[in-house]
Amino acid sequence: MSQSTLSAHAAHDHGHEHQSHSVFGFWAYLMTDCVLFASLFATFAMFAMQTVGGPTGKDLFNLNDVALETSLLLTSSLTFGFAMIAATRQRIGAVLGWLFVTFALGAGFLWLELNEFAHLVAEGAGPQRSAFWSAFFTLVGTHGLHVTVGLLWLVVLVVQMLGKRKLSERDLRRLACLSLFWHFLDIVWICVFSFVYLGSIV
């Protein structure tokens, strides 16, 4: 076997090793995020009844708005899936289009969430009002911060793909990692919707 062939094989093996390390590192990060959100959910459960005579979630939560938030985020997960399908087929125009739709849906979710926060504060239910509202704002706000990071990450990937005729393995790996992150946020939000909003109203 020639020296050039050996070098090519070594470079290929090194690339696969780097890719496996990157994917493993991202999964490790998601596991730490699971621990973070599990801790926030546990904290919220501890203070769910600690309103010190102030307004409760049942008094102020608007399930219609929250349901709209949920539909926007879940739909964004679907559109991201379409972007991944287009990416595997090297249809860059379709990838960029679906990512734009995903960004718009995610931004709409954040806008509704910020409106909800502003409404709650105006009603005297800010994070300083009671332990319940402190736990609520911390949990929901942390999820919203993650969505913001996901949107910024999405913009960076779109900028990197502009002008390309073919997506590299690195591009596909980055898209796959962001896809995992985005779907993870959907799962967390379903738990928030069920445990925080529905659980506080029942």
Rank of each mutant, 00 (worst) to 15 (best):
V52L: 05
H16G: 06
F136V: 00
G57M: 10
M84Q: 12
A8H: 15
A8F: 12
A87N: 01
L120I: 02
F103D: 14
R170S: 14
H143I: 00
E69Q: 14
V188P: 00
D59I: 02
N64W: 05
F109E: 01
R170E: 15
W153E: 08
V66N: 03
V196N: 10
F26T: 08
K166D: 01
L78C: 10
L154T: 01
S7A: 13
G81P: 02
F41L: 05
P55M: 00
V140F: 01
R174C: 12
H146W: 04
Q160L: 10
F61S: 01
V147N: 08
A10V: 03
W27V: 07
A94C: 04
S168G: 08
V159Y: 09
E116V: 03
Q50L: 13
S76L: 02
L185K: 09
S77H: 03
F137N: 00
W27K: 09
L157D: 08
A28R: 14
K58E: 11
A67F: 04
L178K: 02
G141I: 07
L157T: 08
C191V: 11
L175R: 10
H9E: 11
D13F: 11
G124Y: 02
A122N: 07
C34D: 14
T88E: 13
L72F: 00
S168R: 09
A86D: 12
E69M: 11
W27S: 12
Y197K: 07
V159G: 06
V140H: 04
M84H: 08
V35Y: 10
S130K: 02
Q50M: 08
S77Q: 07
A122D: 08
K166A: 13
N115G: 11
D65E: 14
S7F: 01
V156N: 07
A104Q: 04
E17Q: 12
T148F: 10
W133D: 03
T142C: 08
T88V: 05
S134H: 11
S20Q: 13
I190L: 15
W182P: 01
A131W: 06
Q160R: 14
F117C: 05
L96M: 03
A86C: 03
G53Q: 01
L162I: 14
T70N: 05
A48I: 15
L72D: 04
T138D: 10
F82S: 08
D65T: 09
F193W: 08
I187V: 14
F24G: 00
F193S: 07
M49T: 15
L96D: 06
M31F: 02
R129F: 14
V52K: 12
G81Y: 01
R170P: 01
L6F: 08
L110T: 00
L172P: 00
